[in-house]
Design a protein around this nucleic acid. Structure first.
Lengths: 155, 155
DNA sequence: CTGTATCCCGTATGATACTG
DNA sequence: CAGTATCATACGGGATACAG
């Protein structure tokens, strides 16, 4: 983001209407420009993970302890009313979480192999934040459902 | 989720290893079973929105004030270093946020028409939570990037 | 047991053109 | 200005089979 282009935009916006906090928007823009808001940006990556089909659930389950691959899969499949997680997706999501330093693998090199997964300190911290966010959404659930009904009724 | 199946699972898991907090996992399972973890579950929907390409950015920008469609688009396009948002996506995301009661449309029926968008109180609350989450991720950014480098180096 | 490798589909996202 | 319609594409996610 070229800052002069942004300055010009701000000037233009303020000329037409001042219904926003220019200072806060500018600071927000600087924050985003700092890492470019790219695909590899950790902020987008992590938010994207939290929003995908399984990662948030995985973090929640792992926040209660350590699980082997098969145990984790059984737990997820039993808990999730909608669908079972495929072996493929479980591995993919765990790898992604591991790459970001949120999950650790403990490998016992035996036959048959034994691998168990648990949260790193960073993973624990994130899972706590996640739990708070989920809790807030749950509290607002009725308001949201109400809003949806209203919206669908009119439309 | 049939609770007897879950009980059986817990018993089985504890027989093999007790490296997890059975009580917390059970309560977590109950929470999830309460709304089924379905596609229409507000928790998954909202988390999914926050993780998509534009909604989080939209909420952040709108948290600084009220914007008309075109102004919003210019701001987003200028801020986002990666790509411009298409008119179509802007409308789709705004509609989704509006349906969930997070965004309001103020319409002035004139020629040419004027429509401006702003957060509802619920949207303001969510955007604050979001900002906190983003802030935490930013603080952990270096740890995450470090972990990724380590992971990629070994793999 | 813990994964990988393929194939396939649905949805999110994008580009472009058109309209009240 | 603020959309809608249409077509094209990329990616997440699932089913299945195979491997160390």
């Amino acid at each position: 983001m070229p800052s002069d282009a942004f300055d010009a935009l701000m000037t233009s916006l303020q000329r037409h209407h001042g219904a926003f906090d220019c200072e806060r928007l500018t600071s927000l823009a600087k924050d985003i420009a700092a890492n470019g808001h790219q695909r590899e940006d950790p902020v987008r990556e992590i938010m994207s993970r939290l929003g995908d089909r399984w990662s948030a659930l995985l973090l929640s389950v792992l926040s209660t302890g350590s699980f082997r691959h098969s145990a984790l899969r059984r737990v997820i499949c039993t808990i999730s009313a909608e669908k079972a997680i495929s072996q493929r997706m479980l591995t993919l999501r765990l790898r992604a979480l591991e790459r970001d330093g949120l999950v650790m693998r403990d490998i016992t090199d035996s036959v048959p192999p034994s691998v168990s997964y648990r949260l790193t300190p960073l993973g624990v911290a994130l899972s706590q934040r996640l739990a708070e966010m989920i809790c807030w959404i749950k509290e607002s659930e009725n308001t949201i459902i109400q809003a949806r009904r209203e919206f669908d009724r009119i439309a």
